[in-house]
Design a protein around this nucleic acid. Structure first.
Lengths: 244, 244
DNA sequence: CGCCTGTTTGAGAAGACTCAAAACGGGTGG
DNA sequence: CCACCCGTTTTGAGTCTTCTCAAACAGGCG
């Protein structure tokens, strides 16, 4: 059996005991495959599962009363998705596969048992959720207070930072699997304006495109302009008690 | 000694044992008082404390490279603030008192001990943080995809929903302690546009104002228009294991 | 080859922003 | 008790960004 991506993720932050690893591997069930566009979970539908992304990536979105959509986050291998079911029995978001992906289930009951038996895992999960919270604050800030170029830059920087975690070596270009509609829904712009803004960015020499492929030509400038901080690198877990 | 607001909050969601209550009461230290505008924590400064709001309310904001500000959340009695220090040693946000308030500290070490000794408390904290995460998604959605009137309506609805938790009885008006600059920073508008939009809302009969006092005249319409959902009411904690 | 989805371009409109000045209001000192 | 002061709110005028609607274009797939 493949090692769970969640275990790999937690291990980056916390030295785990064999027992802890096993507990997690045990708790994960029912590995499932999805193709781009397929839903793992639908807003307002009953749901009491959490999902662990093992491979690929998904997004989590909200449908509004006025018919539009807001993508509230992207989730990659090792992420825990659908955490709203921790607090409610109806899903608050629709979760959709962006790429081909493999996902496994973690029931709420299993989560409860982890909290009871493996407090250090619980702590690490809490730390990760705190990091996700801050990352969402970044996006909120960008949508609330930045212009179109900055918002798109931030999105590209975030995606590429995330790709670099898994892909070893230098990465400065990547295939963007999202449509411009998706991108607009993520950063709070219309697809038309996304298209124009990408054009502007090309003219300014910030990026280069061909097909789905995007290359960041002036990553340093983009970081300076947006104040981008990679929230997914180091997470401190030193407050978590040592194993006995 | 006054009962901690956090204990009161958790008790709404989870039947606690005396030992659990005591553990929390014990962990909270150094009660402090703040007046409006005082900072409890400043962005990019070292910080390894969490804060529990006991009375009053505070906001948490981000300063951007372009000089503007985004308020990412408001926190009321019973809320845990500064959770970014769970993952990093530098504060990601500036936290400022909105009203006179009383706040107590919870060290990261104490949090670690709670996770180890009181798994049910850890679970409840995790559930609350999941709820906060969803609430931030609501705000993200509103800023990304709604117009000025909807954004302000949502803010007012959220504040009043929160006031009703503490104030018994019917509440349909309240004193808004925020300046229009603050409000703009929270919903992603300029203070000038906030002023105009409040004017529009009055003309449309949605609200009525005199001085700082705001009365919601058409709450039902505002809810229908925005799809507002109160995320702070019921939180499910049934996945948390029973006490032994 | 044609179709379908997604992207680009154009033109005009709407919403929100900027700068600036005036009005308001609560608090302080004379 | 009044006059002044400061921070805040309101109003006005003009501008800029982003949106809407519409049509043309591109590219991958059956």
């Amino acid at each position: 059996m493949r090692r769970s991506a969640l275990v790999t993720r937690l291990e980056q932050h916390l030295a785990m005991t064999a027992e802890e690893r096993d507990t997690l591997d045990w708790a994960e069930r029912r590995e499932m495959r999805f193709t781009p566009g397929q839903l793992l979970m639908e807003q307002d539908r009953p749901n009491d599962m959490l999902y662990i992304v093992q491979q690929g990536w998904v997004h989590s979105a909200r449908r509004l009363v006025n018919g539009s959509r807001q993508i509230v986050g992207f989730h990659y291998a090792g992420d825990l998705v659908g955490t709203s079911s921790i607090a409610w029995s109806l899903a608050t978001n629709t979760v959709t596969a962006v790429s081909d992906c493999i996902v496994s289930e973690l029931s709420k009951g299993a989560l409860g048992r982890i909290f009871k038996a493996q407090p250090r895992l619980a702590g690490a999960l809490y730390a990760i959720s705190a990091a996700d919270y801050v990352a969402m604050g970044d996006r909120l800030t960008s949508i609330g207070r930045m212009g179109a170029i900055e918002r798109l830059s931030l999105l590209l920087l975030d995606i590429i930072a995330r790709l670099r975690v898994t892909a070893g070596g230098v990465v400065d270009s990547f295939d963007l699997a999202l449509t411009q509609q998706d991108i607009g829904d993520a950063v709070g712009l219309t697809k038309v304006h996304v298209s124009r803004t990408f054009g502007d960015m090309e003219k300014r020499g910030l990026i280069e495109r061909s097909g789905r492929r995007v290359r960041l030509l002036a990553e340093r400038d983009m970081i300076a302009m947006t104040g981008f901080v990679d929230r997914h690198g180091v997470i401190e877990t030193n407050w978590i008690p040592a194993p006995e």
